[in-house]
Design a protein around this nucleic acid. Structure first.
Lengths: 231, 231
DNA sequence: TATGGCCATATTATATAATATTTATACGCT
DNA sequence: AGCGTATAAATATTATATAATATGGCCATA
C-alpha cells in the first residue's frame, strides 16, 4: 500500500539542464524573476552557475510551458501577466475541468475516492498563509487536491492540459495574493466539492468547482495584476 | 482585404535552432525519422549539419510538443505510436473540439464564416493522394480547414490544445494512410460540416464533426500502427 | 529648437569546436 | 545468470566567432 507521504527529498535532478529548469521555474513562480523580466543568458549563467547548453535547454523547456517568451534573435523573457489572459485562462479551465471532473466521477473507483479523501486531509493540515506569506506547503497540497479530482478522467491528454492551466492559475494567484483570503472558508469549499464528488453528484460537484474557481478569479482580478508586470 | 493565398515562401528561419526544429519536425511527420527511432545527437549533428547548441534546443522544443521523448541521461527518441495512445487522443479531441466548435458558432461572425468557405474551397482544389502518396498540400489545407472551424472559439488556450492534438492525429493518419480513403467522399463530409456550421446548427455540426473523426479513427486503428513503431 | 532619419558602435543572442566528465550500455568472463 | 570492465554516448564547460539588435550621437530638415 502506498499511503506514506511522498518524502520531500528534493532528489538531485538527473541533469544540470533539468536542475536549472526547476530552479528557474521556482523563481518565476515565486516572483524572484518577475513577469516581463528580460532573461539575459549571461546573467543567468552567473546566477545559476551553469554553462550555455543546460541554460538554453532549460529556457526552451520553459517557453514550451508558457512561462517564458522566446523571440528569435531577441532572446528570452518571463511571460507577462494580464487581465485578458487570465480571463481566457479561467474560462477555458472551467470548460475543461468540467469534462475532467464528470469523467472522473463517471469512472469512479474506491481507490480514487480514497486518494481524494487523503488529499483533502493533507490540505486541511496546512495553512494557506503563514506570517502574511503564501505557504508553499499549502500551495503544493492545494495543487494536488485539484489534480486528484481530475485524475480519474481517463485521459492523459486532458489531464496534462488541466495541469498546465492549473500551473498558470497558481502563478496568477501567487501574484495577486495580497488580496485577502480572509473571509473565505477555503477548506469548507474544498470539502463540499469532495462530498458532492464521492456522492457521485456530478452536476453539483461541477457547480461547486466552477463556483470555487470563479470566486478565486474575482479576487485575482480585483488585484492589480499589471502592477506585478514590471516592464 | 486579406484574401490572397499565403505565399508558400519557406522564409528562412530566424535562427538555426528554429530551422533544425522545423526540419526535424517535418522528418518525424514524414517518417524519415520513424517512431521509436533513437536520436543520437552526433548523428543528428551530421545529418543536419549544425552544432550542439541549436540541435539540443530543437530537441527540447520537440519534446515539449510530444513528438520526441526525452529521458535524462538517456537522450532523445521519436515518440512511438500506439493504439491506446491514439484512442485516448481521439476521445479527448472529440471532447475539446465539441466545445471549441460550439463556442465558435456561438460567436460567429461574417468574417469567420467567409474564412471557412475559403478554407473549404482551397481544400477542394487539392487531392488527398497523388500517385498513391499522401499529398502534403492536401494535408496542409485539411489541417487549416479544421483549425478554421475552431478558430472563433475565443480561447487561445483551447485553440492551442486542439492544434496540438490535430498535429498528433495528423501524424497517426500519415502512418496509417495505406488504409484506403477510397470509399469515402471526404470533400462531402467537410462540406456538410461547414454547412451545418454556417447554418448555426451547433448540434448537427458537432455530430458531423465527431462522426468524421470517428470514421477516420476507425481507419487509423484498422491499420497496424505498431508496425510503424520500429523498436 | 525640435524632429526624424541614419550610421557607427556596443551589446547580446546565437553558434561552433574542442574537450572534459559522467552515465549508460555492451561485452566477455566466471 | 551475475559481475566488472570497456566502450559509447549524453551532458556539460570553455573559449571564441558570427550575426542580429539596440543605443546614442550626428546631421539635415522643418
Amino acid at each position: 500500500m502506498k499511503l506514506q507521504a511522498d518524502k520531500e527529498v528534493p532528489e538531485p535532478p538527473g541533469t544540470l539542464a533539468t536542475g536549472v529548469y526547476e530552479r528557474l521555474r521556482r523563481d518565476i513562480f515565486s516572483g524572484g524573476l518577475p513577469p516581463g523580466e528580460k532573461l539575459r543568458t549571461e546573467y543567468l549563467r552567473n546566477r545559476y552557475d551553469v554553462g550555455n547548453t543546460p541554460l538554453r535547454e532549460a529556457l526552451n523547456r520553459l517557453s514550451a510551458d508558457g512561462l517564458v517568451a522566446r523571440i528569435d534573435q531577441r532572446g528570452f523573457s518571463v511571460t507577462k501577466l494580464s487581465r485578458e489572459e487570465f480571463e481566457g485562462l479561467l474560462k477555458t479551465r472551467c470548460w475543461l475541468e468540467e469534462i475532467a471532473l464528470r469523467e472522473s466521477i463517471k469512472n469512479r473507483t474506491q481507490e480514487w475516492e480514497e486518494n481524494l479523501v487523503i488529499a483533502l486531509h493533507r490540505l486541511s493540515r496546512v495553512l494557506p498563509m503563514v506570517d502574511g506569506e503564501a505557504n508553499p506547503d499549502w500551495e503544493a497540497q492545494h495543487h494536488r487536491f485539484h489534480l486528484s479530482l481530475l485524475a480519474n478522467c481517463g485521459s492523459e491528454w486532458l489531464l496534462s492540459f488541466c495541469t498546465q492551466m492549473l500551473d498558470h492559475t497558481d502563478r496568477y494567484r501567487r501574484f495577486a495574493s495580497d488580496a485577502s483570503y480572509g473571509d473565505r472558508d477555503l477548506l469548507m469549499e474544498h470539502r463540499s466539492i469532495l462530498e458532492a464528488t464521492v456522492d457521485g453528484d456530478a452536476d453539483k460537484a461541477v457547480e461547486l468547482l466552477v463556483g470555487h474557481y470563479r470566486r478565486t478569479g474575482k479576487i485575482v482580478l480585483s488585484a492589480d495584476i499589471s502592477a506585478s508586470s514590471a516592464k
